[in-house]
Simulated assay, not measured.
Amino acid sequence: MGDFNSWNPKEGSLSKLKNGIFKFVFSIYKDTVYKLKYVIDDAFGNELKADSFKRNEFAVLKIVF
């Protein structure tokens, strides 16, 4: 979930492919910074290889460039 889907965890979940990779397709604007967090089994998680991290009033968020 992230600012690209109004932080709604029910709007756009990942699908697991046969090779074990998870995929989620959605439309975003070019040259825009998006913040997101993973929701796995109702627990929040970050991407350890994120471009950068920023803390807000909820948690630490991944920032994708």
Rank of each mutant, 00 (worst) to 15 (best):
Y29H: 06
D51T: 08
V33H: 05
E11I: 05
A59V: 00
G20L: 08
K37E: 04
N19C: 11
V64W: 12
V39A: 02
L14G: 01
S15H: 11
G12V: 09
K35D: 01
D41F: 07
F22W: 15
D3K: 01
F22I: 05
D31M: 06
V60Q: 02
T32N: 05
E47F: 14
Y38F: 15
L48P: 01
N5T: 12
E47G: 02
K18G: 08
V60T: 10
L36T: 04
V64Y: 12
F26S: 11
V60I: 14
L36P: 00
F53E: 01
V39W: 01
L14C: 13
I63K: 04
F24Q: 07
S27L: 12
L17F: 09
F65E: 06
F22V: 05
K30Y: 10
D51P: 01
F58Q: 04
R55M: 06
G2D: 01
P9Q: 05
D42H: 12
G20I: 11
Y29E: 12
K54I: 13
S52N: 07
M1F: 04
S52L: 13
I21A: 11
F24T: 03
V60A: 02
L48D: 11
L17D: 14
I63Y: 07
G45S: 13
D31L: 08
F4K: 00
